[in-house]
């Protein structure tokens, strides 16, 4: 079980409204990712769900029961913190069994669960070490271990991978997804990395200044962003945004076209000059300067065969053109 509903939840710190009234439903077993720029209230929202912050207004329900006034320990949720928040003076074993000890669980059962978690997370060899003697990735796994032994109804992750290097991050991303597949427990995951969001989520919640901009599956957000903010936030490299005359030709105030949907074509509608070309091997990102527009990013598969200063013509794929009105909302 792990169904969480927020009803008109608000949060203010002093007189600063961080979360204006917000509704959200998280289904049992879902992997939900909160994304948004720094300071948009992702952590605050997660902490409201965890019970570490009190809501200013509104209600939170967990599994259909009101949880607004339930203390954090009683909500049946487990949280993995960005700094891991391991207990430095306890061994890995003690760290992982701490929540069980607090629940006064039978020692034999504690032992069994700790060993099972350690096996799942490849920590068996490190059980007697202190957190200070572990690498970043191992610490991360201990933090996750401490969360899974409780068998919570949902996991809350606050940017769990942001302290890891790029390679390890990819690994841990897979491990967490794997864990979700095997446990089938609800997971709420905060990140500002849209790649993590796209690759892990069943459902992405895009936040801006405490407001939900759009909720949907990764592909829904990619294919049909509801507004310019979501369009710019989801997808890498960023969607090209064009307004003015060229947008008016397509009957919109602003148009957006993703780099992978711009083609180099002899008879393309827009002519420009190639600036910087970024070669990734599999792809090349061309920055093309078109008269009267910001530089456009074009994604070309493999090697592009064009170099700095070349004149090129670009043609947007019409079926992938996004149209927005003067308020930045998508027009369909």
């Amino acid at each position: 079980m792990g169904k969480i509903s927020l009803r008109q939840v608000t949060k203010t710190f002093g007189d600063v409204e961080v979360i204006p009234a917000l509704d959200l439903d998280i289904e049992d077993g879902e992997f939900v990712v909160f994304v948004g720029p720094s300071g948009c209230g992702k952590s605050t929202l997660l902490r409201l769900i965890a019970g570490l912050e009190d809501v200013t207004g509104g209600h939170i329900e967990i599994d259909g029961r009101p949880a607004t006034d339930v203390p954090p320990a009683k909500r049946g949720l487990a949280m993995v913190f960005q700094s891991y928040a391991l207990y430095p003076h306890m061994s890995v074993r003690k760290n992982i069994s701490f929540p069980l000890k607090m629940a006064k669980m039978d020692p034999a059962e504690q032992e069994r669960r700790v060993n099972a978690a350690a096996r799942t997370l490849n920590l068996t060899d490190y059980l007697d070490r202190r957190p200070g003697q572990l690498s970043g990735g191992q610490r991360q796994r201990v933090a996750i271990g401490r969360a899974i032994v409780r068998e919570p109804s949902a996991f809350l992750f606050d940017e769990p991978l942001s302290n890891l290097d790029a390679a390890l991050r990819v690994n841990m991303r897979l491990e967490i997804s794997e864990l979700h597949q095997s446990l089938k427990t609800t997971m709420i995951y905060v990140t500002h990395d849209q790649v993590e969001a796209m690759t892990m989520a069943d459902k992405i919640v895009v936040l801006r200044a405490g407001r939900i901009e759009q909720v949907g599956s990764p592909l829904e957000l990619y294919r049909a962003p509801r507004n310019l903010f979501v369009a710019g936030f989801i997808g890498s490299p960023k969607m090209n945004v064009i307004s003015g005359e060229k947008a008016a030709e397509h009957g919109a105030h602003t148009i957006g076209i993703r780099p992978e949907h711009l083609l180099l074509a002899q008879d393309g509608a827009w002519s420009g000059r190639v600036g910087v070309a970024e070669h990734l091997g599999s792809d090349t990102f061309l920055h093309v300067h078109v008269e009267g527009l910001d530089p456009l990013t074009v994604r070309v598969q493999g090697e592009a065969g064009v170099s700095h200063g070349d004149a090129v013509r670009l043609s947007p794929m019409p079926e992938h053109l996004h149209r927005f009105d003067e308020n930045g909302l998508a027009v369909r």
């Binding site: 965890a50 570490l52 203390p71 954090p72 320990a73 949720l77 487990a78 949280m79 913190f81 960005q82 700094s83 928040a85 391991l86 207990y87 701490f98 929540p99 607090m102 629940a103 401490r146 409780r150």
Partner: peptide, 17 residues
Amino acid sequence: DQEQLEASEMDGAKFGS
């Protein structure tokens, strides 16, 4: 570290523990 305290709170530790 405040997060350690919060983590222990979520782990079900009361003030005394």
